[in-house]
Structures are given as structure tokens and as C-alpha cells.
Design a protein around this nucleic acid. Structure first.
Lengths: 194, 194
DNA sequence: CAGGGAAACGGATTCTTTATCCGAATGGCT
DNA sequence: AGCCATTCGGATAAAGAATCCGTTTCCCTG
């Protein structure tokens, strides 16, 4: 019911697809975040038609590039549940999210966007949401994080931190400091008995 | 020494310039943040050449539009110094910055950018920086804000909050909550005597 | 392994957006 | 009024996005 029959790719098509992805990744790594499809085509030595066939939009190509990293975040979120301290688990995980977004402009873009071009991206985002939710709920139960901070708030706020780190002048270890500020801001106010 | 002779504008030129600005503001207000210069020209009923002459780049037009709001922020920053509570003064001021950026996409863009197209923008930003610095220093002296948080950090973090509010799904009063999280995160840790 | 048909390829082409340039028009000054 | 610098407007060039279709390549069948 869910999945339509999907005829497997022809070998040359699969090869081209991978090649385009590799070249696109390279261009991104060289600091060109514009990811213009015609430019990717030229760099990959294929016709623009080929690129557009495999990735109908810039967004689709971007997501295809990024999904690997997204997957890694899902894994790390699940791993973070093993931490003895719920608060530390969350902190470590958010640090990973931050670092990866800083290293991969595309990832930051995808995580800051609501609608996805690829179904797989939506699936991964949902998984990431669930895994994060578990981490967060644990921290809530431990009284470490304000209960009025939900999983979507965490996503948005960490994207905000990424933005803050990106736009700035002197680094001065901004990312670690800003993450600290966020964690401290999300902390439940220490209750004076009760 | 500083300023070159600047021949005053011809009356028709001045009129056109104002008209273009007004139309551009209107387009922005209608939710079109793309601010394409040819589109502005069409809407204003002037040739593209006219627009490009007054505002050589999109960025220049954007800054011209936004400078009025920037100025208002400078005023509000200075006014906030009058608050009896340094922390509250800062809080109120940052709320104003946040609100204005949320209401004016262009302002958010300009405040998140380092280099300016217009000298006047740089001047206003500098003034805003100074005024904010005074507010912040006052809060530092009162022991309300971590001393490792500088004025540039404040700018970057508030832009981050704007980003976080913008990208999100359900609002649920996000802006006020996120501002609260930021303020709390920047607070100096309450010392247990000493 | 030959041959046919579906799938994929490539790039010419069209459409849109961005930016420049210059002959015509207009305003200010004498 | 008459001159000339300034401004105007839009034609035009250059760059980017997306489509379309004749040709090529692969894969399966006989």
C-alpha cells in the first residue's frame, strides 16, 4: 500500500547519479553553497538534463546530499540515551547537531526548512524527532530541562544557534559558548524546596 | 576631510527616489522579500535604469529601506538606559529588537550581515553597537549578565532567536519564550555567597 | 548474439532574472 | 530663452533555471 513499484535504475543511470552526487558534495565542500544545477552538471561532465532528471530541484539534490548526515544524527541521538546523566546526554547530542550543521551548510538549510522535497528526508526528520523526543523527555523527568520546552523548540533553537555562530565576526569559540547559553537557558529553574 | 562634496539631488530625481522607496516598502510589506529591482521598477512605473541608478544593488535598496528602523532601535537602546533595573532595561530593549526584526524581514537580513552597502548603515550599526554596549555594561556591573557575553554576542544571539522563531511550525508564543531562554542563558550564575 | 524497445543521455532552446548602456528628455542656471 | 549637466527609460546583453526531444545506451528476449 505505501510504496509504489519502483523499477530499479539502469547501471549507467546509477553510475551517473552517484557521480553527480559526489561532484556536488565536492563543490559544497569547496564552500559554494549555491549548488546551481547547471554548474554541477558542467563540473560532473554530464548534460544538465541528466542532473535535472535525477534531482528535479536544487532542494532535492541538497537533501540527497545531506541525508547521510541526517542518518548519522539519528544514530547519535539514540546513542545519547545511554548517557548516565540525562542532561549531559542531551548536551552532547546537541553539540553533535551543532558541529555537523557548522560543517555542512546544506544540513543547516535542510534542518531549518519545514517542507521536504524527498520523502526519505521527511522520514529521517521524523525519526530524528522521535529520538530527540526521548532524550528530551528523559531530561524533563530528571528535572533538568524546563517542561515548556518541546522537541520542536529544541530543533528551532539549535538552528538559531547555528545561525548566530555563522553570521558573527570573531569566533572566540562562539559555538561552544552559545551552546552553553542555550543549555543554561533551557534549564529548569532550580526549585527552592517545595 | 571625511565627506566629499555631494551635489544635491535634482527635484525629479529626489521624487523618483522617494517613490521607489515607498513602493519597495509596500512590496516588502506584502510579504515579498525577494525585492527584485526590475519588479520594483515596474511596480513604481519607472524604468529599471532609474532604480539601478539610485540603488546600485538589492542590498543598497534594502539598507535604505531599513535604516529608518535601525535608527529607531538606536533611540530605544538609549531610552532603555533609563530603566531602573539594568537587566529589565536590556530585556525590554532586546524584545524591541526581536519584534522589529520579526515585523521587518529586511531588517533581520541587514542585522545578520557584516558588510554594508551604504556608509550610513555602517554608521547606524556602530551607534547601535555603542548604545547596546552601554546597556550591557550596566547589566554586567549589576552582576545580571555573564561578563563573557559581549555586545557582538548579543547581536548574534538575538539574530539567532529571530531565525529560530522564523523557521518554526506552531508559534505558541515562541518569540517571547525564546527571548526568555536567551535572557536566562545569558544571566550570570547566581553565586552562593562568597 | 542479434535486434527491438524502454530508459537514459545531452544540449539546444526557452523563459526568467540581473545588470549595463546610451540616445532622449528634463531641470536648473545664466 | 538657451545651454549643459543630470536624470530618465527601456532596449539589450549576460547569467541562471528549467524543459523538451532527437540520439544513444542498456537490457532483455528469441
Amino acid at each position: 500500500m505505501k510504496k509504489q513499484e519502483k523499477p530499479p535504475l539502469r547501471v549507467d543511470a546509477a553510475r551517473n547519479r552517484e557521480h553527480v552526487l559526489a561532484i556536488a558534495r565536492e563543490l559544497m565542500a569547496q564552500g559554494d553553497a549555491s549548488l546551481q544545477l547547471n554548474q554541477v552538471a558542467r563540473a560532473a561532465g554530464v548534460g544538465v538534463g541528466t542532473v535535472y532528471r535525477h534531482f528535479p530541484t536544487r532542494q532535492a539534490l541538497l537533501e540527497a546530499l545531506v541525508n547521510e548526515h541526517l542518518e548519522s544524527l539519528v544514530v547519535q541521538a539514540r546513542a545519547a540515551e545511554a548517557a548516565s546523566e540525562p542532561r549531559q546526554g542531551l548536551h552532547h547530542f546537541l553539540r553533535a547537531v551543532l558541529k555537523l550543521q557548522l560543517a555542512d551548510v546544506g544540513l543547516a538549510e535542510v534542518l531549518s526548512t519545514q517542507e521536504d522535497a524527498l520523502p526519505q528526508t521527511s522520514k529521517l526528520k521524523a525519526e530524528l524527532g522521535v529520538a530527540t523526543q526521548r532524550l528530551l523527555a528523559r531530561a524533563h523527568r530528571a528535572g533538568a530541562i524546563r517542561t515548556d520546552v518541546g522537541v520542536d523548540d529544541v530543533r528551532r533553537l539549535i538552528c538559531g544557534v547555528v545561525h548566530a555562530v555563522r553570521i558573527g565576526g570573531e569566533p572566540r569559540a562562539a559555538s561552544e559558548r552559545y551552546l552553553g547559553i542555550l543549555m543554561s537557558g533551557m534549564s529548569a529553574p532550580t526549585r527552592r524546596e517545595d
